[in-house]
Amino acid sequence: MIRFLTHRTLQGIVLILIVSMIGFTVINLAPGGPLSQYAMTPGMSQQDLDRIAHQMGLDRPIPVQYLDWLVNMVSGDWGKSYRDQSPVLDVVWRHMWATLLLMGTSTAIAVALGTLIGVLGALKRYSVFDYMATVGAMIALSIPTFWFGLVAIFFFSLELGWLPAGNMYTVGDQSFSDYAIHLIMPSIVLALVNVAIWSRYMRASTLDVMDQDYVRTARAKGLPRWRIVSAHIVRNALIPMITLAGLQLPTIIGGALVTETVFTWPGLGRLFIDSLGYNDYPVIMGLLMFSAILTVIGNFLADIGVALADPRIRLG
C-alpha cells in the first residue's frame, strides 16, 4: 500500500508539472496579454508600458518567467492577481467555498437520485418506469445547461416569484435559509445532467451485477429480496461508480462554469471566465493548477475508495 501511495504521488507530481508547463506556454502564446489592459489607458506611452512590463517581470524570456513562477508556486506563493493585486491563493480560496457549496449540494442530489433511478430501472427492466427514465435521461443530456437555467429563472423567479434569480445570498441577510433558497435552482439545474449520466451508468452496472452467479447463489440461500438487492447487487454495482465519482471531482471548476454564469454565482467557474477576460495570468494559472491537483487527488481518492470497497483490488 505504501509503495502504491508513493508511486501515485510521484506520478501526480509529474502530471502537474507537465500541465503547468503546457498551460504556461499556451497562455503566453495567446494574443493580447496583461499589458493590453494598461495600453487602453488614455495617455499611456510605450515607455510607460515597458516600465510596467519590467516591473511585472514580463520582459524576461518565457522559460525564466516559468521557472520563477514554479519556484514561487512550490513555496506557496502563487503570485498576485493583475486585477487587484490580491494573492492568487486567497482569490481561489475565496471563490472555492461558493463552488464547493453548489457542487456539493448538486452532486449529492445527482448521486442519490441517479443511483436510485439507475437501480430501479435495472430491477424493473423494460418497465414503464425504465422507459421513462431512459427517455428522461436522454432529454436531460440534450438540454443545454444555460437554456435550462434561463427557463428555470423565467418560470420560478420571474413568473412565479418563488426563487431568487441569482446570487448566493441577499445582501444584508446571510441566514441559513437565505443560502438554502438561493441554492435550490442552480444546484438542481447543475444536477440534471449528472443525474442522467449517473443513472445510466448505475443502470448498466446493476444489470451487469444482476446476471452474476453470486446473485443467484444469494437467491438460492433464501435471502429476502431487499437483502439480495442491497448486499449483493447494489453493493457490487457501486464499485465502478467510485471511479466515476473520482473523475467528477475536477469538474468542480469546469462543470459549474455555465451554471455559475447564468445564476451569477460567485464561484471558481465565474472567476475563471472573468480572469480570462482580464488576461489575469496568475489567477488563470492558479485555477489551472488547482484543477490539475484536483484531478490527481480525485483519481487518487477513487483508487483508494475502490481498493477499500473491493477486496479483489486490495489483495490482488
Binding site: 452467479d213 453470486y214 453493493r235 477486496p311 479483489r312
Partner: peptide
C-alpha cells in the same frame, strides 16, 4: 453450483 469461482460474492 457448477462454477465455484463465480458463485461467491467477491466483496464479502
Amino acid at each position: 453450483f457448477q462454477e465455484p469461482l463465480t458463485s461467491l460474492n467477491p466483496v464479502h
